[in-house]
């Protein structure tokens, strides 16, 4: 049996630091999509993992164990492997290897994202714990504010190189304006 070497989606591409923004790869742990079943109880997530099933546009939990709204009738459990008790309440799919997760940080992070996402990212409109499915450049992705100047970005794994490239170009563009 061949011994295969596991590579992270952005291996060799990040971290990158330009001006007042820095991009790094995030190891998300296990990513599981949760879709509430008809008649299921979304409260089961709180009981099993301690964070509420997020409302549209919201994320719950904290770094290392988050639930992030990911579309109509769906959220991602990011970090822990799903508790077996969730099976009765959610349709679940392991998506761990499907996504590249990047952390964009720094005082210029919002300006960098503003070049890529058609979102209102002002701190009073897109707060910590807010999330959005939106476009990142021409890619569909997920943007979550995890801190005052800190965002978690998710794109399909196959788009990792393109995402890093486009974000780096935006970082350079913001930095060049001084």
């Amino acid at each position: 049996m061949a011994s295969l070497i596991a590579k992270s989606p952005c291996a060799g591409m990040a971290p990158i630091s330009v001006g007042d923004a820095a991009l790094r790869e995030v190891d998300p742990g296990v990513i599981t999509s949760l879709s509430p079943l008809a008649g299921g109880d979304v409260g089961a997530l709180k009981a099993a993992h301690g964070m509420a099933f997020p409302a549209p546009g919201r994320a719950s939990g904290k770094a290392g164990a988050r639930a992030v709204w990911s579309g109509r009738g769906q959220a991602f459990l990011i970090g822990p492997a799903p508790d077996a008790a969730l099976k009765a309440h959610f349709a679940m799919t392991d998506q761990s290897d499907g996504w590249a997760v990047l952390g964009l940080e720094g005082t210029a992070a919002r300006e960098v994202l503003a070049r890529l996402c058609p979102l209102d990212l002002r701190p009073d409109r897109f707060k910590r714990g807010h999330t959005a499915r939106t476009l990142i450049g021409h890619m569909t992705g997920s943007v979550t504010r995890v801190g005052a100047d800190s965002f978690d970005l998710m794109v399909f794994r196959s788009m990792a190189q393109t995402a890093v490239h486009e974000i780096e170009e935006a970082m350079k563009s913001v930095a060049a304006r001084g």
Binding site: P56, G57, R72, P118, D120, A132, T134, L135
Partner: peptide, 9 residues
């Protein structure tokens, strides 16, 4: 669900 969004989405 998402609020005001640009039509390119």
């Amino acid at each position: 669900l998402c609020g005001d969004r640009d039509h390119r989405e």
